[in-house]
Structure formats: structure tokens, C-alpha cells
Nucleic acid binder design. Structure first.
Lengths: 250, 250
DNA sequence: TTTGACCTTGACGCAACGGCAACGTTTCTA
DNA sequence: TAGAAACGTTGCCGTTGCGTCAAGGTCAAA
């Protein structure tokens, strides 16, 4: 047999056969005088053996190990491991499909699939003012929504919901405006501690504990540093004081 | 933010961030005077967007397309396609696990997992004689067992089973011996046509139609050529006559 | 001052082949 | 009998999504 016949017989490409030679999975057969490889039936059997394991999902390395150990206990362990692995894959795919189903159902209602639809609603409410600072806050919330795992995502939403009530929104807008006014103010400006105190008063307890409690190295952890870097010195000072105040509150 | 902070914030490696820059998924931010990349919150938002789609299983190319088309209809189609793809994967994995379960159950009984256990039993029966020719036949059957898809595999077994009955086995061994005797005989030897006729008489009808009916380009198709290449000229001639006889029989 | 923890670009590695180049051999066909 | 088609040979690059050096430059703390 020449390589093409062997390949057709077993149902693989000639490239695959040569690849198996290259990686030592299949012994090189004798050559004819013209240099062509000359295969026997036993080569086809060996190749079919390899393919059988490959199609079960074993890597070529694993197949080599399994065949080297002459089809003993080793193979059985590998197969069990493989089965566990496949089970995990099935679960993972199932979870992804579940998330997809949610996304697809919601996509019928709105196309803003960059964030979850609940969070999109929250962001719409918050964005009714033109505050430059509100924009930073919105970016931050959008980030939290994408970065957190689904369980935390619900918690973030719960934290935000009280702030979307009409009175809270009005007060929030006023606070945003006061923050905007500090854009090029001095950090020692008297309005700074006043605003920090009012902000602290405006924040629900649950949000406070969430903000203080987030470990610095978890995803979404360096929030304070990341936000202060975005704002002016006076605004950063507001944050510093705010965090101090909140820490006292716990 | 520097690249490490950004990466930690979103929960990826710095290498991943740079990779996304490299492939154009994430715009390069401004550089500080020392050459460090300087990220803003919106970069984190963009990165998190990308990750969100990536974790759903979209390829980076698809993510680029989806984001370029500004989160419209395109994305929805891709998600649906992805869902269908995942469904197919689930099915494929299920099929593999089913095959694995069979293998594992049988591995308790015997370790000869290169061929299916039923075929292993058939091969044991056939191998009771020391005929060199029987060895070729056994290789061939082992190959058919691994190469054919599961549906065909059962058919092959059905074909073989009649030959494993005691009387059939005895006659089969006698035929093998007569084939072995032709190892270095002349193709014109009078024993050749006689043996071909006896072989034809020995083969069940179902096996005949299976052998004649297999298309030459299907997997396992070139069986005649592959087998004749393994044997001596006189034995090949037996085969030629055998096939002629069998073709008449259909 | 010297670690040590960052950052930079660049390049190789990975799994399992597919595909091409550039060339020789065999086989079919006109 | 010539030429084309269909095989064979080796070798190298491309794929995916980064991980992992290598060989530096930068910056903060001890």
C-alpha cells in the first residue's frame, strides 16, 4: 500500500499519516526504491487503533503513553479521567447556553447587550443629568456589571436600585453638580469636606459595606485608586474623606 | 492606570491586554513619558466588554466584527449561531461519553480494548490455528472493526458469527491450511481454482454481498487490493478467482 | 545602592494538522 | 510517445489565544 491508499482505507488524510510518523505515533514503514513509503495491513491496523483513541478525544501524547503501556491499567485511568473531563465540558457548555438564552431573550427587547438589561435601565436613569462626573460613575458601574460574576451582579443591582428612586435621583444630581464644580478647585477648598459628608449621608448602608469590604486584589478591587486617577485633585480629596467617613461608619 | 492594574481590575493577564492591542480589539491608550501605557476607566469598560463576549465563546475575530457593527443585529445572529454550535458540541460530547461508558464497562472484563470485545471473542476463536494466513485475516478483521462506524461494526460481527461455530471453524482451519500451502506455489497450480471454489462455498451469502457491495472509495473500500498485496502470487490468484465466482453468485 | 516589582518589545511554543512550494514518479490519455 | 493528471517526497508557514521566556528600561522601597 502507498500512503494515499492507507489513508483512504482508514479514513484520514495523508498529511495526518505523515504527522503521526513525525511525532512517532506510527512507525515509518520500509521504503520502495523510489522513496515511497510501503505500508502493510498491520500498519493500517495500528493507524486505526490510533484514530480510535483520537476520536474518543485523547491527545496524541496520551495515545502514545497508552499504547506504550500496552493497553493496560494506564489506559483505563485515562479514559476515566477523560470521561470526567467531558462531563465538566458538558456542564460548562450548559451554563454558557443558559446565559446565552437569557441574552437572546433580552436582545428582543433591547440591543444594549454590553451590560445586563437591568443595569442598562439603572444607567439610563442616572444619565439624565449632563454631569461630567456622572459619566465617570456610569462607566464605573458598567464595568462592575461586566466584571463581576453573575452572583455579585445581582448584589450590585440591589445596591443601585434605591438610588434610582425619584427623590434620590434629584439629590444625586445635585451632588454630581457639586462634584463637577470642584473640577479645578483647590483640595483645601472648604466645599470639599462638606460634600464628602453629604455624599456619605446619601449612600445606603449596604453600599458602604460593599465598597469598604471589597478586597484590593479581587477583580474590581482597586476601585478607589482607579477612580481617583480619573478626577481632579479636589475631587480625589472628596473621595479620600468620604472613605474615611464611611470606614468610621462601619 | 497602568497595564497591571487594568488587568487585575478586569481579571485577565497583562499578556492578554497586550494581545488585544496587537490584534486591534482594544485601542492603544496614550503613553506616559516613560513609555508606559496609561489607561482610563473607559478602557476597562471596553476590555470588560470584550471579555464578556469572549467568555461566551465568541472568537476574537467575531468579537471584533460584533463590536464594529455596534452591537446590532449582527451580534444577535452570531449568538444564535453560537448557541446552535454549542448544542452540537453537547451532542457530540454525549455520544463520546456513551462510547466511553461502553468501553469502561468492558474494560473491567478484558483489557484488549484495541478492538471491540465482541470482535475480540471472534478473533480468539479464529486464532486457534497457527496459520500465517489466518493472521492476515485477523488483521483485516481487526481493521474493519476499528475503521467502520458503529452501525457497520455490528453488521461485520453478524457476518463473522456463523464462521465461529465449531463445524465452520474446523472447515475454516482446513481452508487456511490449504491457503498456506500455496505460499510459494505457481499461480497456475491446479489447487488454486479448487481452493477458490471451496472458499466460495464456505462463505455465507451475507458476507458475499458485503464484500462485493463495498464501494472502492468508501473507508475500508480497497480491501481486495490491500489483501492481495500481502500475499503470494498463487494466493492472490485464489482471491481473484474467488471474487469472480462470488460476483457470479449475486 | 541594591533589590524587587513593575513596564517595554520581540520572539518562540502549544495541538493537530491544513496548505503551499518545489520537486520527482507513475499512470492515464490523446 | 508525449504530455497532463494524479500521485509521492520533504519542508516550512499558518491557524487560536494567549503563556512564557529573553533582554532590557523604570520606579519605589529597604
Amino acid at each position: 500500500m502507498r500512503i494515499g491508499e492507507l489513508a483512504a482505507l482508514v479514513g484520514v488524510s495523508t498529511r495526518t499519516v505523515r504527522h503521526y510518523h513525525h511525532v512517532g505515533l506510527l512507525p515509518e514503514p520500509v521504503r520502495l526504491t523510489n522513496g515511497y513509503r510501503d505500508y502493510r495491513l498491520r500498519d493500517a491496523v495500528a493507524l486505526a487503533r490510533v484514530r480510535r483513541l483520537a476520536e474518543l478525544g485523547l491527545s496524541l501524547d496520551e495515545i502514545r503513553d497508552a499504547l506504550a503501556d500496552d493497553l493496560g491499567r494506564e489506559l483505563r485511568e485515562m479514559l476515566e479521567e477523560l470521561d470526567a473531563d467531558l462531563a465538566r465540558q458538558q456542564e460548562a457548555i450548559g451554563a454558557r447556553r443558559a446565559r446565552l438564552a437569557v441574552l437572546l431573550a433580552e436582545a428582543d427587547l433591547q440591543a444594549e447587550s454590553a451590560v445586563s438589561p437591568e443595569m442598562a435601565a439603572v444607567l439610563r436613569d442616572l444619565s439624565s443629568g449632563g454631569s461630567r462626573f456622572a459619566a465617570v460613575d456610569r462607566e464605573w458601574l458598567a464595568l462592575m456589571d461586566t466584571v463581576a460574576d453573575p452572583a455579585d451582579r445581582g448584589r450590585v443591582l440591589d445596591l443601585m436600585l434605591p438610588l434610582t428612586e425619584p427623590q434620590a435621583l434629584a439629590r444625586g444630581h445635585a451632588l454630581y453638580e457639586r462634584l463637577d464644580e470642584l473640577d479645578d478647585a483647590d483640595p483645601a477648598d472648604p466645599r470639599v469636606p462638606a460634600l464628602a459628608a453629604d455624599l456619605a449621608a446619601h449612600m445606603p448602608d449596604a453600599m458602604v459595606t460593599a465598597m469598604i469590604g471589597t478586597p484590593a486584589d479581587a477583580p474590581g478591587g482597586g476601585w478607589l485608586e482607579a477612580m481617583t486617577a480619573e478626577v481632579s485633585p479636589a475631587q480625589a480629596e472628596v473621595f479620600r474623606l468620604l472613605v474615611l467617613t464611611l470606614k468610621d461608619r462601619t
